[in-house]
């Protein structure tokens, strides 16, 4: 544990004002940095002799819209059945497009990278939070770690996060000509369009989805005694 505190201490001095917070949780260290310092921090973490994070293991986007919101309030006893009780309430992205949660979160998107130092056998998670009311843009890390190339394309494709300076920011996982960013929380799980074969036109066409969105198990957040007892 003391080693962890040492690492946090040295990271705090190294990153200075660029780091908004550096915390340790269950043995993993997470540093949250300013979006404007993203590229600078990455370079420092790679090149500093005390860090040497030579490898970027992973990069991914996160959409914090609807974080901590449940789909079923059950503080009081309910007379409705379990899954039926969810009808009508709107969890983000789970129901119709018209029922979606409005994006109002200040810091909606995050870009998270997982770094690995082969020299010191250490891992580090670095995160930056991007404002949701404007186009999420952050600097590319492709010149720091070459592995960032496809991971950034994936984050762009799935979340619409733009990476400034990326030489080839194309969609990667979705179909050619796909509209929207499917992993955003306000993108419905069943999608917006489906593909069918049109007998008359003799070709495959897109049409709005015809299936009904449904929930088998509602999302619940519980703070009752079963879960609180373990904390002591």
């Amino acid at each position: 544990m003391t080693e962890q505190t040492d690492i946090i201490q040295s990271l705090t001095t190294l990153l200075g004002e660029d780091a908004l917070s550096i915390e340790s949780h269950q043995g993993e260290i997470t540093a949250t940095v300013e979006p404007s310092a993203w590229h600078r921090v990455a370079k420092t973490l790679r090149d500093d002799s005390g860090c040497q994070y030579e490898q970027m293991v992973d990069l991914c986007g996160v959409d914090y819209l609807g974080y901590g919101q449940d789909e079923w309030e059950d503080d009081e006893a309910t007379f409705e059945g379990y899954s039926r009780a969810v009808e009508g309430s709107s969890g983000p992205g789970r129901f119709d497009w018209s029922e979606r949660v409005e994006a109002g979160t200040e810091e909606r998107f995050a870009v998270v990278i997982h770094l690995l130092s082969v020299t010191y056998n250490r891992r580090l998670r670095v995160r930056t939070l991007l404002k949701g009311d404007q186009l999420p843009v952050v600097a590319t890390l492709i010149d720091v770690w070459a592995a960032a190339d496809w991971y950034e394309r994936e984050a762009f494709d799935l979340y619409g996060i733009l990476f400034n300076g990326h030489p080839d920011l194309r969609r990667i996982l979705t179909d050619y000509g796909f509209v929207g960013h499917p992993f955003r929380k306000d993108f419905p799980l069943i999608g917006n369009v489906e593909v069918i074969y049109d007998e008359e036109k003799q070709r495959v066409v897109y049409q709005p989805v015809t299936i009904e969105p449904r929930v088998l198990v509602p999302k619940v957040v519980r703070n009752d005694s079963r879960y609180l007892a373990d904390e002591e």
Binding site: V57, D58, V62, H114, W150, E154, V217, V220, V221
Partner: peptide
């Protein structure tokens, strides 16, 4: 690798899977 963000509910808020082949193919 599996990266899970939990918001204290019964479902993962975000799950990201780090697949080795993705980096290799790139």
């Amino acid at each position: 690798g599996a990266y899970i963000v939990s918001d204290g509910s019964n479902k993962p808020f975000r799950l990201h899977l780090r697949a080795p082949g993705f980096a290799h193919l790139s």
